[in-house]
Computed example of a mutant assay.
Amino acid sequence: MTKNDPLSVCITHAMEKYFDDLNGQEPTNLHNFFINEVEKPFLEVVMQRVNGNQTRAADILGINRNTLRKKLKTYDLC
């Protein structure tokens, strides 16, 4: 893996490592786990890029500002 790899390659690598680390155990609630692992740092980076401006962040993300606020609160980012 290199810093120039597309995001999908990085995700694939991380998920393969996750399954390898489970040593054959079946994961549960994997979708929720994955979304929570990815969404928080995703939102952190976006909020840093817009200097905390929720209106700009919501526009960039293509979501409603109220939805963004709810997500920020969920991850204790506001």
Rank of each mutant, 00 (worst) to 15 (best):
E44R: 10
N66F: 08
R49E: 14
C78T: 14
N51R: 14
Q54R: 13
N36T: 07
Q48K: 15
L77K: 04
R56M: 12
A57C: 10
N53H: 08
F42W: 13
E44K: 14
T74A: 09
K73F: 01
A57W: 07
N51Q: 15
N53L: 08
K40C: 09
F42Y: 13
K40A: 05
Y75W: 05
C78R: 13
R69A: 06
N51T: 10
N66I: 07
N66W: 05
R69Q: 10
K71D: 02
T67A: 06
E37G: 13
T74F: 06
K73N: 03
G52D: 10
Y75I: 03
T55S: 15
V38S: 05
I35Y: 09
F33Y: 11
L68Y: 00
N53C: 04
N51K: 15
E37K: 15
N66C: 06
I35D: 00
K73M: 00
G52I: 09
N36D: 07
T55E: 15
V50Q: 09
D76Q: 12
R49H: 13
N53Q: 08
L72C: 10
F42A: 03
G52T: 03
L61Y: 01
E39W: 04
A57T: 10
A57R: 05
I35S: 05
A57S: 12
V38K: 08
P41F: 05
R56S: 10
E37Q: 15
L43V: 01
F34S: 15
E39H: 04
K71Y: 01
N53W: 04
K70P: 03
G62F: 10
Q54I: 10
R65V: 11
K40I: 07
L61E: 01
F42C: 06
T55M: 09
R65E: 05
C78Y: 11
N64I: 00
L43G: 01
L72I: 10
V50N: 08
K71N: 08
T55V: 13
E37W: 13
G62V: 08
R65C: 02
L68R: 00
V50G: 13
Q54T: 12
Q54L: 10
N64A: 02
L43D: 03
K73P: 00
N53S: 10
L43E: 00
I60M: 11
G62R: 06
R65Y: 01
L61V: 02
P41W: 08
R49K: 15
Y75R: 01
A58N: 03
K73W: 00
E44I: 10
V50E: 04
D59F: 12
L72K: 05
V38A: 08
G52C: 10
T55R: 13
V45E: 13
Q54G: 07
I35E: 02
F33A: 13
N66K: 09
V38H: 06
V38M: 14
R56T: 11
L68T: 00
L61W: 02
K70D: 07
T55I: 12
F33E: 12
V38Y: 07
K73V: 02
T74Y: 06
N36R: 15
N53M: 06
K71R: 13
L68W: 00
C78E: 12
I60W: 11
Y75N: 02
D76P: 08
D76C: 02
K73Q: 04
N53T: 04
A57N: 11
R49Q: 15
C78N: 12
R56I: 09
